[in-house]
Design a binder for these strands. Structure first.
Lengths: 136, 136
DNA sequence: CTTGACTTTATAGTTAAGTGTAGGGTTTAC
DNA sequence: GTAAACCCTACACTTAACTATAAAGTCAAG
């Protein structure tokens, strides 16, 4: 078995399950560089680099389909890096909105929590009362 | 059809789909106060209050199963409001961690975006290069 | 008395990113 | 030469919160 890593070897090296690699292949994210006579996938260092790309891009909040787009942009010499920068900035905007939403949730929980004495029957719990109250 | 709202009426009033109400019922979140002779669900104001409870609790980041717990706490006179406060504080901690994660993503995207001149072939894009680079 | 807008149940599909299984073939180590 | 560990495909399952469908029954208006 020379000239490449089998799926188990590269998966172990990159900290993924072999099925995850096959899944990524179905999505068009990575393909083995070739197959053995017995149809085993063989991967090279380029595949390992792509897997690290995927991991890092996921850590920045990109979905697998967005990562496929990013990889396609990288592959295509006619494309401009503006497209990449645009994706990064769009993603930043999405993340900022999520942060805002979460901060609003946090503040809501904080102010309700402050009103709760912390003991007594739940029927008098100010948190539950606030959630149940009639006014919209 | 007196003495209650049919599923379509309360759903429209609360801005939900009727199927969502049936779904909530399967999860044990709300039940109609009674059924007509022809087996139609009938809801009262209490159900409407519960639906608003669900909506507000969702807006604070609680899952439907957590909301079921909250409603059960409210129903049970033997329970203490400490349990509610604990859930609120646990949820706050979860939200804080999510905010941290997102802030780290945002900073990563920001610093990569700053390095990108914004035009030129994608092969030279510093964002893609950073994601692809060999060192761990 | 029929048409259309409701309602009922049970069941299946959606999204994202995997994970698990069945039923087979292959390679490696002893 | 055989057992363990690996690989193949195809398909089903997972979670959360819905959403949609089919096939049937009910209700209100004209």
């Amino acid at each position: 078995m020379q000239g490449g890593m089998t799926i188990g070897v590269i998966a172990r090296r990159e900290g993924l399950a072999a099925e995850t690699l096959r899944y990524y292949e179905r999505l068009g994210l990575i393909a083995p560089s070739r197959r053995t006579a017995s149809n085993y996938r063989l991967y090279n260092e380029d595949a390992a680099r792509r897997l690290r790309f995927i991991r890092r891009a996921q850590a920045l909040g990109f979905s697998l389909s967005e990562i496929a787009e990013l990889l396609a942009l990288h592959q295509n010499p006619d494309k401009d890096m503006l497209a990449v920068k645009d994706m990064a900035q769009t993603k930043m905007a999405v993340i900022c909105r999520k942060i805002d939403d979460l901060q609003r949730m946090k503040q809501g929980l904080e102010s309700l929590s402050e009103q709760c004495p912390g003991h007594g029957p739940t029927a008098e719990c100010p948190i539950l009362e606030a959630l149940l109250k009639d006014d919209v």
